[in-house]
Design a protein around this nucleic acid. Structure first.
Lengths: 242, 242
DNA sequence: CAGACTTTGCGTGTTTTTTACAAGAAGTCC
DNA sequence: GGACTTCTTGTAAAAAACACGCAAAGTCTG
């Protein structure tokens, strides 16, 4: 039984890659570690999973403590379980990513205490633990998801312009998209509601505002429907090393 | 068992969905549980992760103990961590699937002891724990992978006919494929080597044998290349409930 | 060994999707 | 009112996907 007991000296945690979109740039919310190991380095927000807490719930809790937000898009990506990934013991972590509207984010006590800060994906440097690997895996998953499901809207305010939407896709996919073709394709899916409103306070012709047609989408999904986008041929340099 | 419960805090395990292909049918290797909980029910092969063992290594070990095979295609899919998924305590499991050539499989002591048996995916019934859910997640992942990467070959013998290959795709994708279009598409990818050999022992015109061009594929991937297949419009009933 | 049987192997025309590409319209600012 | 910026829109060409049927190769059997 003592031998058996060895199996239970390990712990599990969740780590959450929280994506936001701002200024045409894909961002991720990182915390600054206040204690060893990796004191002073940036890291993904995460926590040990409580004994009576579902995995998904733990990821949601980490997110909510840091951002005050709940009911946002949250998806499990992978477990990371290399023996030495945590210097203090055996900790297997399950990685999640979430998509939030950055404008809804407010600084919570937890995020203040942990010095949470948004980082452009392109400027993320060496993170604590194996968090670069985790971040990369989550980013790759997002990149793939965004082609096959309309999750991008989770990152935009409720009302947005087609240009904003295109910039979002370009940022995530790291590609350039043709404006006319993009609009044609998106509009032909019939998932956007034209709000008959326009932008305000811009020093040029204001663009029309649209809204994502959530219910219509859910109906289409139930009827079996596939959302898909392809990239153009121009490929800028990747945001993260492959 | 009460003693067990006292010590029991939390543990990790891996579960492995081992796919094989035979008689035009996608199969999965299940074991028959010899002990409670779920005694007598079919279950996915799995094990607790040793304290000093990487997650991936644990999945590989489970596979090798059962099949004697190593160096096969193995991919992590997801972690399953609902609080009550294991009746005896908190066990988070990480699901993997592997693709093996069923003809290479031999009964090992472990598989004999655990009464391992191949089951057609379409005839899998209620499994122990949350293993139906795990199986389904792995199958969905395979279905998606097979469209974007040439992993199907892992399930076929080294030499195969185009018809066998097509049947494999049809089984995995649960769809019908047009023979001429399928052959055109596959051959146009230039990933098959025509072996200049033909089938033997069949009571009809023997088909040509092909081989997957592993090195050529790896070269193409390095150069940035995308493998893709789409389904036809005819949709047979799904193998597993969605 | 001829005829029946099964499975292989192959080409073309049609439709759909993707791509490339530019100019005028609507607002703001000075 | 003129300069400036961004918004909006269509068409033609190329590529990919799709539907579709028949002759040839080999085995079997009587």
């Amino acid at each position: 039984m003592t031998e058996f007991n060895n199996f239970f000296k390990s712990a599990f945690s969740v780590d959450n890659v929280i994506f936001g979109f701002d200024e045409g740039d894909l961002k991720v919310l990182l915390i600054n570690r206040g204690a060893d190991p990796f004191k002073g380095m940036w890291a993904l927000p995460g926590d040990l999973v409580y004994p009576n807490e579902d995995l998904d719930a733990a990821a949601g809790r980490v997110l909510e403590e840091l951002t005050g937000l709940r009911d946002v898009y949250l998806e499990q990506v992978n477990a990371f379980g290399a023996v030495n990934r945590h210097p203090l013991g055996r900790v297997i972590t399950v990685a999640y990513y979430s998509l939030i509207k950055i404008s809804n984010y407010v600084v919570t006590p937890a995020s203040f205490a942990q010095q949470a800060k948004w980082h452009s994906l392109s400027s993320v440097e060496a993170l604590a633990f194996d968090h670069n690997e985790i971040l990369n895996a989550c980013y790759q998953r997002l990149k793939q998801r965004v082609r096959t499901r309309p999750v991008g809207f989770e990152l935009l305010p409720p009302k947005f312009t087609l240009t904003q939407l295109q910039h979002l896709y370009e940022a995530i996919l790291e590609t350039g998209l043709d404006k006319r073709n993009f609009r044609k394709k998106i509009l032909s899916m019939n998932l956007l509601v034209d709000l008959d409103e326009t932008q305000e306070g811009v020093a040029h012709r204001p663009a029309k505002l649209y809204q994502f047609a959530q219910e219509r989408y859910e109906k289409l999904v139930r009827e079996g429907f596939s959302f898909e986008l392809k990239e153009s041929k121009r490929k800028p340099t990747p945001l993260l090393p492959v």
